[in-house]
């Protein structure tokens, strides 16, 4: 019995650890994606500006779009975490 409990504990611990590692890897990508979003926004804006000869305006507008895209990435991730937490709690209640 004791042995059984012990092995169960180890199993749950390893699963927990695996989840932690998985989410760590998943969320560590956030920083790069945020930075790149802003950079891509500025890039698109600069390209359009040099095409239409309207220098600062489109760059600024698309930079703002890029910043919003970066924020949206965080927002979607937060929503995902919230949903996963809710599912976990529901599983625990069962």
């Amino acid at each position: 019995m004791i042995q059984n409990n012990g092995s169960l504990m180890i199993m749950s611990l390893s699963e927990n650890k695996r989840d932690v590692i998985k989410s760590l890897l998943n969320y560590s990508s956030l920083g790069l994606e945020m930075g790149l979003s802003v950079a891509i926004g500025i890039g698109i804006g600069y390209f359009l500006d040099s095409y239409f000869k309207t220098y600062p305006y489109l760059t600024i507008i698309f930079m703002l779009f890029g910043i919003v895209a970066a924020m949206k990435t965080i927002f979607m991730l937060l929503k995902k975490i919230e949903r996963e937490n809710r599912e976990d709690e529901r599983n625990k209640d069962k």
Partner: peptide
């Protein structure tokens, strides 16, 4: 535009 920028950022990152 926000979505397009977000989607381009994915393969780049």
């Amino acid at each position: 535009p926000v979505e397009i920028i977000g989607h381009i950022a994915r393969p780049l990152s």
